[in-house]
Amino acid sequence: MSETAIGAPAAAERRRAGRRSNRAVFWIAVAVTLLWLFPFYYALVTIFKTGQEYTAGGPLALPASTAPVVANILEAWRRTHMLVGMGNSLLYGVVGAGLAVFVAALASYGLTRLDYRGRSYWFLLIFSGTIFPFQIYLIPLFQGFARTGLLDSRLGMILVYTAICVPFPTLVLKNFMSQIPRDLDEAARMDGCSEWRIFRSIILPNSRGPMIAVFLLQFNWIWNDLIFSMVLTLDESKRSIMNSLMVFQGNYAGTTPNLVVTATLLASVPTLVIFFLLRRYFMQGLALQTSD
C-alpha cells in the first residue's frame, strides 16, 4: 500500500486520456490529495483518543469524543518537558538564524558592494560550508566542544547553528544585493556615508524581503534539527525540541501512541503557524532556492 501505487495510475491516466475536462482533473486531484493526506488523518484522529481507546479500537478508528485531547496535550507537554525543549529551540532558532542572516548580509555586502581581487574565492570559502554532508562535522565538533567546555552548552549550540546557517543566506543575499544599483552607494558616499553607514542605512533596509525569507527558512531548519542536538548536548535541559521528542518516542515505558502523536503535533505547531502566517515570504525563499 504505497503512495506510488496511487500516484502512478492518476498520472498515467491523464496522459492516456488526451483531451480531458478540467473538472474531471480537478476531482481526481482532490481524491489524490485526500489519499496523500491520510497520515494527517491518522494523527488528527489519534490525538483525540485515550491510550486505552487507541489499543482497543484500531488505529484508524474515529475517536469517541474530542475530550481526551486536553489531557493528551497536558500529559505530553509534561512528560516531554516541552517547555524546556521549545524554549531551547526557540533560542537556538531565533538567535542562530538571526545572527546567521545578519552575518550573511555583512558578508554579502563585502562581496557585492566593494571592488577587490579574489571576490569569488572568498565567496567559495564561505559557501564551501554547505558542500559536505553534516556527518563530517560531528566528531570534530564533539571533540572540540568537549575540550573547550562548549559541550552541552547553549552557547555552543547557538554557535554551531549560526555557523551552519551562514552559507546559504550568503548565497541568496549576494545574488539579491548584486541587483541593487551601485549608484545608490555612490550617492550615499557623496552624502558622506562610511561603508558601514551605507550598509546600515541603504543596503540593509532595501534587502528586507530576502532577509526575512531566508531567516524563516533557517529558523525552520534549526527548529527541525535532531542530530546536532543529539551529539552536542548531554543534559535534557539543553536539548532541542526534536531531540526531546525523539527521546520521548523512544521511551517504551508508558508512552502510548496518542501521547507521542500529540507531542509530535505540538512540536510542529510553531512551524505550521509561521508557515501559514508568512506564506508569502516562504514561497519567496523557495524561489530563491531554485535560482541558485
Partner: peptide, 24 residues
C-alpha cells in the same frame, strides 16, 4: 574594508565547519 564585512562569516565557517572538516 571588505575584510571587515567578510570576517564574521569567514570566521564562523572556518572555525565551525572547515577546520572540523580537515580534522575529521
Amino acid at each position: 574594508t571588505a575584510l571587515c564585512f567578510l570576517a564574521p562569516a569567514v570566521l564562523l565557517v572556518t572555525v565551525f565547519l572547515l577546520v572540523p572538516l580537515i580534522y575529521n
